[in-house]
Amino acid sequence: MTDIAVTLADKRGTLPAEDKLGFGKIFTDHMFAMDYVEGKGWHNARIVPYGDYDISPAAMVLHYGQAIFEGMKAFRTEDNRIVMYRPMDHLKRFNNSADILTIPRMDIDVVHAGLRQLVELEKHWVPKALGTSLYIRPFVISIDPYVGVKVAEQYTLFIILSPVGAYYASGFKPVKIKVEEHFARAVKGGLGEAKTPANYAASLKASEVAKEEGYTQVLWLDAIEKKYIEEVGTMNIFFKINDEIITPELDGSILNGITRRSVLQVAKSWGMKATERRISIAEVYEAHAKGQLQEVFGSGTAAVISPVGELSWKGKKITINNNQIGETSQKLFDYITGLQQGRVADKFGWVEEVAKL
């Protein structure tokens, strides 16, 4: 196992009031970093004080966007254990994104060891209130000072931590989503399957337009036919039709969400029919017209489960489940958050204990 050097911060911060956390604006005292140089590989794994990082104005990430990231969480359980949710699954997906962006694969055992050590060091930053967590953001950037187009030869990997409140300020209640008809986010054979900044940059314009119209997010359709459902801006999407949970199949343009996997496994363990297949927006609207569309909800690390109360497509709005939280959405939210915070027995082996307070 690679030794991880530790340099402690001179001063240690304190966790703010848990009702003032917001999302992604507060950071802990330390971060993990590791470097890559062509011919030497990944090396210099270290934990250092959180702070600004100098790069050249010619750093390739600033010009060509060769970068990837992940998002996962740690939680404080009711008995004051610090746990992470499916960290190795996230790190395996991290390497998949690296492959797509032609970034050298990492030894995820080393990254995992560094992550555990970092979270243990910062355990006093993990909030306890329901809906709060310690958000974990691993990312890699290309740093070669070069403005020619090529695969970079130098990279830095970071992991930073942020104590967060609920992702949606409005809390766990149905959101309004606009079905995107004009803009395109990703195509098969592109970057859609990777967690890379470019995917999120491509979604911003449509999201801003939707917000101006009163919607929380957009639901993306396939870029070619504008017919088949893909995912929401920050979530995978599910439809409950005639007691069957349906989510778009993975086809190279949809993120393989860790919470998405959890929903499918949990639903099947409950004896529910849960299907991954191609589904069109027309089918969803037809199911609504027939009274067969029971629920719509998103899934993701940040929000866990996000019920959808309204869809708008081609100017036609439909209300789902009387704009109320559906039974399945609530049950899944309670179960997965219960797993994460130690209130539900972990029969799947998804929760990893890191430390105790």
Rank of each mutant, 00 (worst) to 15 (best):
F172C: 03
Q217V: 00
T234I: 12
K173S: 08
Y200T: 06
T196R: 09
A186E: 03
I245Q: 07
E212V: 09
V232Q: 07
K176A: 14
E212M: 14
D243H: 11
A223N: 02
Q217L: 00
T196A: 13
A166E: 13
F172G: 08
K211Q: 15
K211T: 10
A198E: 13
I246N: 07
A194R: 04
G233N: 15
K176L: 11
A166D: 11
I246E: 07
I237R: 04
S207G: 13
I177V: 15
Y168S: 10
K227I: 02
K205D: 13
Y215H: 07
V232L: 15
E230Q: 15
I229H: 10
T196S: 13
V232G: 02
E225R: 14
A223T: 01
K178H: 12
A186D: 00
N236E: 09
W220L: 05
A186L: 03
V232N: 02
K240M: 13
V179M: 04
F238L: 04
K226S: 12
V187R: 10
R185F: 03
R185G: 06
V187D: 11
Y200F: 05
Q217D: 09
P174L: 04
G189L: 07
R185Y: 04
L219Q: 11
A210Y: 02
Y215F: 15
A169T: 08
E225F: 13
V218R: 07
K176F: 11
G190L: 05
E180M: 10
G192F: 11
A201N: 08
A206T: 02
K205L: 15
G214P: 00
G165F: 05
L204G: 07
F172T: 06
A169V: 10
N236M: 03
A206Q: 04
V209W: 10
K240R: 14
I229Y: 11
K195P: 02
M235C: 14
